[in-house]
């Protein structure tokens, strides 16, 4: 499968992409009870960080293991690297225990990116669920700096419960600051919640965008993306204007080991961001 990236994509700081670069945890911010954001700085303080929204790094918790985590920070900042991680298992739980001053290994950035410079002048609809908002946060930073590139911008975000909503303060700030329609919904809520309740996908039907001139960016659990694609199809958004970020287990992140095979390609090289028409034949197939 052809890679999505036709233009120049940032390479890692190291000449050998198999060797992690040493970073230091500068700050830890708790987003929810199981999700945290690291601000990392290179131990070699001179290195400049460069990535495109949608790309990921392999984060190595020494003595435990290495996992792929999307970059969630502002792409315009070259001195600090941000990652938002939900602790689910062995490595991410160990990562959650790191404190400011601790070291972590970083390889990357790897993979394809959201088509932010390729799809200007259209409406933009961003559909995300759960931790899926993290890989889209750099997109929102980008849009904040270059709002004029798009017409309407709509963010539809689903979380499990109000206390699981990521980047709450930023969502409020972005909504107020740069003409962004934000609709948040939760699967379940106690009586004090005054927002939407229900899954995120039905919000697509009533979201204010022009389907004939819209590009859609999707990131979240795969089943959520399947239903979101159906809703976008119902509204008439063409397959070649729907982009999704896919996840598979990874080891090398370089297209060598085959762990992340997805159809005829590899998520680490050809993805994680795919244009839907390029994966339509394998998307949602349980055996792929």
């Amino acid at each position: 499968m052809a890679t999505m990236i036709e233009n120049e994509v940032p390479q890692g700081l190291n000449a050998d992409p198999m060797i992690p670069q040493l970073y230091r945890v500068d700050r830890v911010r708790d987003e929810t009870d199981d999700t945290f954001t690291f601000s990392l700085v290179p131990e070699n303080g001179e290195a400049k960080i460069s990535f495109l929204p949608g790309q990921f790094n392999m984060l190595y918790v020494f003595g435990t293991g290495e996992v792929p985590i999307s970059i969630s920070g502002n792409p315009a900042l070259t001195s600090v690297l941000e990652h938002t991680t939900r602790s689910v298992g062995i490595v991410t739980k160990a990562m959650c225990l790191l404190k400011p001053g601790d070291q972590i290994g970083v390889r990357g950035p790897f993979g394809s990116h959201w088509p932010l410079n390729e799809e200007n002048g259209r409406d933009l609809v961003i559909i995300s669920g759960g931790i899926g908002l993290a890989p889209l946060r750099p997109v929102l930073y980008f849009l904040m700096a270059q709002r004029e590139k798009y017409r309407k911008i709509v963010l539809l975000y689903g979380a499990r419960a109000p206390e699981d909503i990521l980047f709450k303060k930023e969502l409020e700030r972005w909504r107020g600051k740069f003409d962004l329609e934000v609709q948040v919904t939760v699967d379940r809520a106690a009586s004090g919640w005054r927002g939407n309740v229900g899954v995120v996908t039905p919000l697509v039907a009533r979201a204010p965008f022009d389907p004939s001139n819209t590009v859609a960016l999707l990131c979240g659990p795969e089943v959520m993306m399947r239903f979101a694609v159906m809703e976008l199809q119902k509204r008439g958004v063409p397959h070649d204007r729907i982009y999704l970020s896919m996840e598979r287990n990874m080891k090398c992140a370089l297209g060598y080991c085959g762990h992340c095979q997805y159809g005829p390609g590899f998520v680490c090289k050809d993805g994680p961001v795919y244009r839907f028409d390029q994966i339509v034949s394998v998307f949602g197939k349980s055996e792929v």
């Binding site: 759960g130 499990r160 239903f227």
Partner: peptide
């Protein structure tokens, strides 16, 4: 049908939790 799909997604607890 749409409401049933949405309810099934809610029941699946797709965002998972620890």
């Amino acid at each position: 049908t749409s409401r049933l799909d949405a309810t099934r997604l809610q029941l699946l607890d797709i965002y998972g939790h620890n």
